[in-house]
């Protein structure tokens, strides 16, 4: 497993195999082989673009939904977590420490969509005892990428 390669891909998955090879001082074939292997092993789970939907005129709302759940004997949180993860409205599911058990990121077109999903699908689940929904109002950084202010080069014009 090549951690350095994984780090580079996590910053920019579209970097060409040739450039990655040059940067790491190995051949492009080696890079191709390593990537394929890490995909097969499930270390690399997918490649997606980081999109600032707020800049695009598409209705889109996200919410963080915290859930308290009664774990099922013999299954713990797995069963309910996997069930929640299977909804297409759900972007992420995490088992959490602290006051709540699960944190779910839900996405919809409108506020009502998300509210409806929480009310109709999540809250009524047998093992879910309470929910707390927080709507995202503005995004500043997504997956390591600053969204609204392009970083400026603050270096002075000085000859060295």
């Amino acid at each position: 497993m090549n951690i350095e390669l994984l780090k580079l891909l996590s910053k920019n998955a579209r970097r060409s195999e040739e450039d990655l090879a040059t940067m790491l001082g190995v051949s492009a074939d080696e890079i191709k082989k390593e990537i394929k292997e890490m995909e097969k092993k499930g270390y690399i789970c997918g490649y997606k673009a980081v999109i600032d939907w707020d800049k695009i005129n598409t209705a889109s709302v996200s919410a963080i939904v915290d859930l308290n759940v009664v774990p099922k004997a013999g299954f713990g949180f797995e069963e309910v977590a996997e069930k929640i993860a299977s909804f297409s409205e759900v972007e992420a599911v995490y088992l959490m420490s602290g006051v709540y058990d699960l944190t779910v990121v839900v996405k919809g077109k409108t506020l009502q969509d998300v509210a409806r999903f929480v009310a109709r699908e999540l809250a009524p689940m047998e093992t879910v005892t309470s929910t707390s929904t927080h709507f995202v109002m503005r995004r500043y950084k997504e997956m390591d990428v600053l969204l609204n202010n392009a970083e400026k080069d603050g270096r002075g014009q000085l000859f060295i």
Partner: peptide
């Protein structure tokens, strides 16, 4: 005085200039 000044001055008038001129860590 350093002859490089003039390059910096020209570069400063362009808004799409790509510089590899600064010898300072980013």
């Amino acid at each position: 005085p350093s002859g490089i000044r003039k390059f910096f001055d020209i570069a400063a008038t362009m808004d799409d200039v790509i510089s590899l001129s600064i010898g300072e860590p980013d």
